[in-house]
Nucleic acid binder design. Sequence first.
DNA 1: TTGTATGCGTTATCAC
DNA 2: GTGATAACGCATACAA
Lengths: 335, 335
Amino acid sequence: MNVTIADIAKATGLAKSTISGALNNKSGFSEKTRRRVLAAAEELGYVPNEIARGLSSKSTGSIGLIIKDITNPFYNHITKGVQEIAGEHGYTVFLCSSGEEHQAEINHIQAMVRKRVDGLIIAPLLEEVTFDHFFELKEQNVPFVLLGKIQGLSCDTYEFDDYDGGRQVTEHLLSMGHTRICFVRGPKTSKAAKLRYSAFINTLKSHGIEADERYVFQNANGIADGMAVGKQIAAMPDRPTAVICFDDVIAIGVIKAVMEAGLQVPEDLSIIGFDDIEVNTFPLTTVSIPTYEAGKALAWTLFDRILQRRTSGFQHITFEQKLIERASVRQLYNK
Amino acid sequence: MNVTIADIAKATGLAKSTISGALNNKSGFSEKTRRRVLAAAEELGYVPNEIARGLSSKSTGSIGLIIKDITNPFYNHITKGVQEIAGEHGYTVFLCSSGEEHQAEINHIQAMVRKRVDGLIIAPLLEEVTFDHFFELKEQNVPFVLLGKIQGLSCDTYEFDDYDGGRQVTEHLLSMGHTRICFVRGPKTSKAAKLRYSAFINTLKSHGIEADERYVFQNANGIADGMAVGKQIAAMPDRPTAVICFDDVIAIGVIKAVMEAGLQVPEDLSIIGFDDIEVNTFPLTTVSIPTYEAGKALAWTLFDRILQRRTSGFQHITFEQKLIERASVRQLYNK
DNA sequence: TTGTATGCGTTATCAC
DNA sequence: GTGATAACGCATACAA
């Protein structure tokens, strides 16, 4: 049913190897036979079997991308960047989402290895998990690039400077007169959440302020959690004056809930997020993160590895985060 | 370097076929050898090669999903639904985005066929394009399900009732007293855009109102276009009282631009979108579309085809669209 | 310039 | 129960 190079060999009276060579534009074939081969291939409706090609050539022309959440714009832009570069290389990408679940991440990585992807780009869970599967991956000799760093694992990494982002955000709030600040942490498996939080604590401390335990919310993830948190904040008797959210999605959830509860932002409550997502009407003060660029960069270095253009040591690159002041933080006069 | 069943055959002194059978839990092997094989595989660090398996078994365990825009929540939710069902079947998905470009769609489909995916889910461009590649795909005998219908092409399809969505939205605006209504059409390759627009025109006409040409914007796609349109609307001397946007992303762009220009929504301008995207603070009146459910349904019927559970005729399912009234449309008293 | 032979890692069809 | 052996579709080294 499926036409193979054997069929077109038979049809043209040439050998399989000639067909293969001519089809792949290898040198050493007359223009005449090349055309003959191409014509026959066209006529028979030949579609190269990349599976067979992969088995024989040790390269599948596909890479795997493992993110944490398909519905978060943060990962959408990373994905977009990766896709773009992959496309430029004639590659195709398997997209997997771990959904912040350890076992899912493990399963996806193993599935990708079994599918013999030429390389892997992974946004790994970094807190409260084990990393055996990464060391195993390393031994399996499939090139991979990480969005985040894992202790003792040598590979190319990209990071965003989350600590500094947390610091900027806290400094900003402080400079606007806020001291009763609420902090909504992201997923407990997120190192970004941890870093931003410790930056928050430390920056507060350096200004002689102690963070209030009651004002920190753990493990928020997604808009639903954001709304739940917002509801709680709105109902607090000694409400904070500002809240730092792990990301814009959560911030948007908080804003929705808080407004539904009859509060105004920033008049009654100042709010800051992270990621600077574009599709949003609210003038949210946030921290911009170059996700699209990071996606492209991740893919570039992966392809450098795959195509062996670079065999030198592993590189570790950190992207800056940058506070974008808009109108969701109010200047406080009377502390 | 890579350990194969041949290696584990050598290690155990058994035959390759025995290894293969035992590993795949085929019946007819003693518990003893099965355990021996498993142990050896574990010890040698055997990782099955799905490429080789695919070549031999004619099934790759992967499907392709071709959407139009990775960064649009609409497709994110479809993707999420598809991924979920694929995962349940032990399948992996290639994600491709056509970016509303005809040639990209063609290339992606062909790439997927070359990769011998077991099936394809496609959100095709439906206007101002040719469909030869779909008829070709049909002849290549790879199962596929479409989000949209193509004339003369028999396959399973899902659709959203865009005409009715357009009607609902127009009726609503009319009932709120609006007659000077602006319509922002989506991509010119979008049939949804076309249907909604014709519903708009017809509904208006049935109320004895003629649509104003100056109030229709063509080919908007993404937030940037939405903002550009919003800017233009804000600057119009005889500004419309309401605007219907192809989707929420565009609507959000319009709202941003219009507010930057100093207008209030809905006081100065009423706005309606489509899709009901969740991550959004603005109380946008919009049309909800069951994207996540559709994603799951698309995948279900694809797997029905792949696993031959259903061999009867092709099915065509239409999901309803439902107006969600929030606060972006104002009641007009003096027409 | 073209043809032959072999291998890639599995699965599958047979015998034994 | 288990073991040869032949596909699967292509690439490639080597001959011719």
